[in-house]
Amino acid sequence: MELPRHYNENRLVLMIQEPTVIFSYWELSRGQWESLGEGRPLFLRLYTTGLNQGGTILMEVSLPPFTNDWYFRDVFPEYIYQAELGYYEPKGEFYPLLRSNQVVTPRTRTVEGVARFLKVETVIRVDTDEDTVEDEGEGTAFWGGYSSVDLPHKS
């Protein structure tokens, strides 16, 4: 079964890709496109928001025609973000068409210390498929590899 290319919905979604990168995608229904008229440029705004307070415009992008996604790069970790998709009237007033969900970028942490890897050897008994450290007689095989050790970090 093939997925439809469009769902004929009005939606704007933000997704965190990294602590400093937010991906956005949107769809406008056919009716919304018809009401806009031809040739009207769309703009995508990214706001930083706080809980129960208005937002501050961080970035605004004039979207190229036929665009339905955008990456916001160099955003701040540990902030709340929301976006609006809209257009400007001839008098210069911005009219939002869609508002996105809110997202919170994760914090970045630095890991102190040096990563350590431990060499691990396990003896596997071929006749029972069980891990064991018993005799290394007939019917045994070895598996060797490395395992990382988690290091404590500061929050």
Rank of each mutant, 00 (worst) to 15 (best):
E121V: 14
K119T: 14
A141E: 07
T110P: 02
V114C: 06
V149Y: 09
V120A: 06
H153G: 05
S148A: 10
E138R: 00
V111S: 03
V133T: 06
H153L: 13
D129R: 14
G144H: 03
K154S: 14
G137Q: 04
I124K: 04
S148N: 04
D150K: 15
S147G: 03
A141P: 00
R116V: 10
W143N: 03
G137V: 02
S155Y: 05
Y146T: 09
S155D: 13
S148F: 08
I124D: 00
E130N: 10
S147H: 11
Y146G: 06
V111I: 15
E112R: 11
K154T: 15
T108Q: 15
K154Y: 08
L118C: 06
T128I: 02
G139T: 00
E112H: 08
R125N: 12
G137Y: 02
L151Y: 00
G145V: 08
K154I: 15
T140Q: 01
E134R: 11
S148D: 09
D135H: 12
W143R: 14
F142D: 01
E136L: 13
D135K: 05
T110F: 03
P152L: 06
H153M: 12
I124P: 00
E134V: 00
V123D: 00
G113M: 06
R116L: 14
R109F: 15
G145E: 10
S155K: 11
E136P: 01
V133G: 10
V120Q: 08
R107T: 09
D129A: 13
D131L: 11
V133A: 05
V123E: 01
V114D: 12
R107P: 14
K119R: 12
R109D: 05
G137C: 03
R116E: 13
D129I: 00
A141K: 08
T140Y: 02
P152W: 05
D127L: 05
T110S: 11
E138A: 05
D127Y: 07
W143M: 05
L151S: 07
V111M: 04
S147T: 14
K119W: 05
G144E: 14
E112S: 14
K154D: 07
D150N: 13
W143K: 13
V123M: 09
E121G: 02
G139D: 09
R116Q: 10
H153R: 14
Y146M: 10
F117L: 06
L151N: 13
V126Y: 02
E134I: 01
V149C: 04
V149W: 05
V126I: 12
Y146V: 08
T140F: 02
D131K: 11
D127M: 02
E112F: 04
E134C: 03
F117M: 08
T132W: 03
D129K: 13
T108I: 15
T110N: 09
D131Y: 10
D129T: 04
V120N: 02
E112L: 08
V111W: 01
D131Q: 10
V126G: 01
